[in-house]
C-alpha cells in the first residue's frame, strides 16, 4: 500500500493522498492482460501467420462471404426494426402513465437476463409451423422458423433493450420548455416531434442502433436454433466459425473470426464518427 512518489515535470499521474494506486492498477492491468489482451492478440497473431494468400482464399470463399453477409444483413435489419419500435417503447414508458408501467419497464431487460439458448428454443417453438405465431403466419405464406427471417426475429429479441435503454434516459432529459416554445411558435405536435425533438434524440438512437447491431452480428445462442443453419442461406458467421473448429480447420476459424472482429471495430468507428458529427450539429 505504498504511494508512488510524485515526480516533477511529466507525470504519469496526478499526486493524491489516496493509497492503493499501484496495487489496484497493477492488478487490473495484469488481469486484463491475462484474460483479454493475450488471448485476443493470440487470435490476431495466428491469423497473421496464415499468410496473405491463405487468408485471402478463406476470406473470399463463397460460404464465408455468404455467412458474413447473412450475419451483418440480418443484424442490420433487426437493429433498424428495433430503432423504430424501441423508440416508441421508450417514449411510451417515459411520457405516459398507465398501470403496470414499472413491470413493463423491468420486462424490457428480459433479453439481457434470459440466457440466449433459452430464448433460442422458445422463439423456435413459437415460430415453427405448429407454434402459436408460426401457425398464424403460415396461412399467409410467411415462413419464419428455419429461414433468414427467423434470424431477424431472434436478433430483434436480443437487441431491443439496447435501443430502449439508450434512448429512454435522453427522452427523460428533454426540457419541456423546448416543446412549449415550439408549440407557442405555431408548430403542431407532429412538427414538434419530428423537427424539434428527434434531432436531439438522434445521437442516442444511433448509439442504440450501433449497440444492437454489434450485438446482433456476434449473436450465436438465440440464432442457431431458429435459423435452420443452411449453408449459403441461413448460416451465420459465428456458426461457421464453430463448424470450422469442429472440422479442426483452425486456420479458417481464425480467419473468419479476425474478419468479424475487424468489421465490427470498423463499424463502431464509423458510428462513433457519425455520432460526434450529429453531436456537434445539435449540441
Amino acid at each position: 500500500m505504498t504511494t508512488a512518489p510524485a515526480k516533477a515535470g511529466w507525470r504519469f499521474r496526478q499526486p493524491s493522498v489516496i493509497p492503493g494506486f499501484g496495487l489496484t492498477l497493477g492488478f487490473s492491468l495484469a488481469y486484463l492482460t491475462l484474460i483479454i489482451l493475450i488471448p485476443l492478440s493470440g487470435l490476431v497473431w495466428r491469423s497473421a501467420s496464415l499468410g496473405w494468400t491463405d487468408f485471402w482464399a478463406i476470406a473470399t470463399d463463397r460460404r464465408t462471404v455468404k455467412a458474413l453477409e447473412i450475419s451483418f444483413g440480418t443484424a442490420f435489419i433487426a437493429a433498424a426494426v428495433n430503432v423504430v419500435f424501441g423508440t416508441i417503447v421508450a417514449w411510451v414508458l417515459v411520457r405516459y402513465r398507465f398501470p403496470g408501467r414499472r413491470v413493463i419497464d423491468a420486462m424490457v431487460d428480459l433479453p439481457f437476463a434470459l440466457p440466449t439458448a433459452v430464448a433460442g428454443i422458445a422463439l423456435t417453438t413459437l415460430y415453427s409451423p405448429k407454434g402459436w405465431m408460426g401457425s398464424l403466419l403460415a396461412p399467409l405464406g410467411i415462413k419464419v422458423a428455419y429461414t433468414p427471417l427467423g434470424i431477424v426475429i431472434a436478433l430483434i429479441f436480443i437487441g431491443l433493450p439496447f435501443v430502449v435503454r439508450t434512448v429512454q434516459p435522453i427522452i427523460e432529459e428533454i426540457d419541456k420548455e423546448v416543446e412549449e416554445a415550439a408549440a407557442t411558435l405555431g408548430a403542431n405536435r407532429f412538427q414538434t416531434i419530428f423537427r424539434v425533438l428527434f434531432p436531439g434524440l438522434a445521437p442516442a438512437v444511433i448509439t442504440g442502433f450501433a449497440l444492437a447491431f454489434a450485438r446482433g452480428v456476434g449473436e450465436y445462442g438465440s440464432v442457431i436454433f431458429i435459423a435452420g443453419n443452411l449453408p449459403y442461406i441461413s448460416e451465420i458467421a459465428p456458426l461457421l466459425i464453430v463448424i470450422r473448429l469442429e472440422e479442426y480447420d483452425y486456420a479458417a476459424a481464425t480467419a473468419i473470426a479476425t474478419i468479424m472482429l475487424a468489421l465490427s471495430f470498423l463499424m463502431l468507428l464509423i458510428i462513433n464518427l457519425i455520432q460526434s458529427r450529429t453531436r456537434k450539429r445539435y449540441g
Binding site: P39, G42, L43, E219, Y220, P238, I241, T254, A257, S264
Partner: peptide
Amino acid sequence: VSPVISGLVYVL
C-alpha cells in the same frame, strides 16, 4: 466481441 470468438481465443 462475439461470444463464439471469446471461446475461440482460448482454443487457439
